[in-house]
Design a protein around this nucleic acid. Structure first.
Lengths: 111, 111
DNA sequence: TTGATATTTCCAGTATTATCGAATCATTGA
DNA sequence: TCAATGATTCGATAATACTGGAAATATCAA
């Protein structure tokens, strides 16, 4: 993760509807949700939803797979971990400092 | 932390220059940096820097204090922790799942 | 006071982003 | 093949954000 990746990733979730979409997908877990189900949950018109899903996808925050007629979206958890790691990189000059010590660095082993 | 706080917080760091400023301040630690030092480090014209600092400050990502003629800026570490916690809230429906288990939740005790 | 330093505010121009209806594309079942 | 379903793309409009020079504000030292 570097600045060129992080800025689009952050911009992707720095918007009311997209943040709602992303959090919904985080909560949905690896199974994900169909676009229609997201639209129902959030009350967004299809073209707006599609715009935001494409934005999140382009930024690598979510993934897409087709299941029959539906497109299923899932949150990319590793990307979020990488993003958090980047944001807190070299905290306090790398010295043991407290504020953000070991922020989300342990890269999440699957249970 | 809720959506109304998180969107401005994310938008604040979702911009090339502001992300650079923020990361610089994270690395600077609690001592922070004067506006002028930030400008020197990043090569930004003063009015632009001020614009971005105000943006970050309004969003609560950084704090400001005066020291003689200089305004010193510091990263707000707790805010970042709260933000990360919000983003990964109820991951996978709250079940033990792996992907983002205990992301940055331990709220960082000072060393 | 006066002058120098540090930083912000104002402003105008430019560029980017969000919205959503209508049209289109993809997949499936009959 | 046709109609129905699920979702995306297109296009026009409105709103918001970024940039940087010039002027204003705050602080300090002589």
């Amino acid at each position: 993760m570097n600045t060129n990746d992080a800025v689009p990733a952050l911009a992707a979730i720095a918007q009311e509807h997209r943040l709602a979409i992303y959090r919904l997908l985080v909560q949905a877990g690896p199974e994900g949700m169909a676009a229609g189900a997201i639209a129902d949950a959030l009350g967004l018109p299809p073209s707006s939803l599609s715009f935001h899903l494409a934005h999140l996808n382009r930024a690598g925050m979510i993934a897409q797979r087709r299941e029959s007629r539906s497109l299923i979206y899932t949150a990319d958890f590793e990307r979020m971990n990488a993003l958090v790691g980047f944001l807190t990189d070299k905290c306090c000059g790398g010295q043991p400092c407290g504020p953000l010590a070991q922020p989300a660095s342990p890269p999440a082993k699957r249970a």
